[in-house]
Design a binder for these strands. Sequence first.
DNA 1: TCAGCTGTTTAGTATATACTAAACAGCTGA
DNA 2: TCAGCTGTTTAGTATATACTAAACAGCTGA
Lengths: 105, 105
Amino acid sequence: MKENLPNIDLNKVTLTQILKSLSDPIRLEIVTKLFKESKECSCAIFNDLGKKSNLSQHYRNLRLNGLISVRHSGIHSYLTLRQAELDHRFPNLLKAIIDNWHHRF
Amino acid sequence: MKENLPNIDLNKVTLTQILKSLSDPIRLEIVTKLFKESKECSCAIFNDLGKKSNLSQHYRNLRLNGLISVRHSGIHSYLTLRQAELDHRFPNLLKAIIDNWHHRF
DNA sequence: TCAGCTGTTTAGTATATACTAAACAGCTGA
DNA sequence: TCAGCTGTTTAGTATATACTAAACAGCTGA
């Protein structure tokens, strides 16, 4: 049984960490997709964004920077955007970024 | 007479460029200070943030990513946050980031 | 005129980042 | 049981980044 890693304490996550994490197009895409789904999603839905080994590192980055939590169940991994917690620590930030997602290119 | 460089066309600036530029603590500090002053500022007020050669590169980064305009006059350079234009292209983004500036560390 | 000022550019370095390929770990249906 | 699946980790690479020191450009007051 694969252990679920504990969530990062958001009180230790800085604004610049969040901005840097989301300044990568693939990570921004993942987070935006999770936001729009507004529920836990299997990693499988992101496979069109790149190689699995690369995506896995982006999941790790997002987890370590407090943006997502990761749950392992059976063969799959499931990602959840930590939206409520992020809104609590960084009010309006996530929404403002995602609302401007259409200018990502 | 030193030429003033033309401003970057904000329509060509992407969301990820903005986020990456502001993910650096020094640049975030400069932009926040310009926001709070809400007027053109001499570079001199940022000299406590680091070496001049390094700061100059950060000014360049901010200019190339559409965040500031730079005016040269006599011996000094003056920086202006392109707030209205940024708000037009990226609604609410700048404010949301600066409002969370206290969590930069 | 020119010493001394502000800010920029250049060259160089150390570190971080994004990516790939390959090996790997863990799970599950046949 | 085990082949084949999903996703992770490791090793390696190419590029980007942040920084410094030193040279430089342009301006100006004495």
